[in-house]
Amino acid sequence: MIKYILLALLLININLNASDIRLERYANTKTWLQDADSNADSAYNLGYTYDVKIKDKKQAIYWYKKAYSIDKKVEALNNLGAVYNDLKNYKEAIKWYKLGINVEDGYSAMGLALLYEENLKDYPTAIKYYKKAYSLGHIGAAYNLAMLYHTTLKEYPNAIKWYKIGTDNKFNESPYNLALLYEDNLKDIPNAIKWYKKAVKLGHYKAINNLTLLLKNKDLTLATAYVIAEIGNGYTKKETLEYLRNDWKVDEETIKKAYKLQLKLDIPKHYKGGI
């Protein structure tokens, strides 16, 4: 009987640590397997392969824990939290995320905030951990926190505050969504225009569409300039000029002025191909 038990344990160990045919399609996995019992990076890489590519969460958990046990590899903590979150084992997810936070991992704090917001609908605790994530250097947490205040809690002053913080960190979704808040929720068009411009400056080209529609009846030349600046960014010169001439009814003189104006706009990319 003891013989069979020992054999079963041996087979389990082989199954966990020997080459898995599913790994063969991925580069470097054979090398990682050779030293994964003592090399945290190799163990982590195996965990990541099982987690993201093979979608075997059980094996991912095994190797992430192995990586952490070898030298307290911080990345494994956030990933363990995420795997348990995917499995809806929130108790374990919270445990591992908190271990990550204890060693000042901003990604773990971000993951925990998302868990409380999206899965547990515990918004006060989500806010707590978004703020913690931001304090640990995760700049995306400012945007998520602003979105929570904006779309879920309808606390617009707090949303504005955190969108501005996100903008200060050059997170271009922040000024874009702040502009949407001013336009759609507060009906404050001057501020909407101001923040769409900031979003465009940070490379958020979707903001140009919203901005031009607000500017069209206020300053046609400026609105046309922003449209011309989009040439080559998903729109051809022919398409853009036809749109301006046929849909907006912009005259040729205004188009020429707008072309020169867009060359001076404070945006990441200008169209220099002429009209």
Rank of each mutant, 00 (worst) to 15 (best):
L6S: 13
E118M: 12
V52G: 00
E253W: 01
Y90I: 12
N233I: 02
K128L: 14
L136H: 07
Y68Q: 13
G234V: 08
A27E: 15
P190T: 09
L11H: 01
K216C: 01
L87T: 06
E118L: 14
K131M: 07
A207V: 03
T240K: 09
Y182V: 10
Y134T: 01
Y116C: 11
Y129S: 03
K237E: 12
R245P: 00
L99P: 00
K170F: 11
K256Y: 10
Y182M: 03
E183A: 11
D86I: 06
T212M: 06
I160P: 10
Y182G: 06
Y134Q: 06
Y48T: 10
I267Q: 00
L136T: 02
V103I: 14
S135G: 04
N119G: 01
N158V: 00
Y182P: 09
L10K: 03
K257V: 02
K187M: 09
Q262V: 02
P157A: 08
W63C: 04
L11M: 11
L241Y: 14
K53F: 13
R22F: 04
D35A: 04
Y62P: 00
D71F: 04
I231E: 05
T221Q: 15
L115A: 06
Y196K: 06
N209I: 13
Q262N: 01
I12H: 03
E173A: 13
T152L: 11
I21D: 13
D105A: 08
I228T: 06
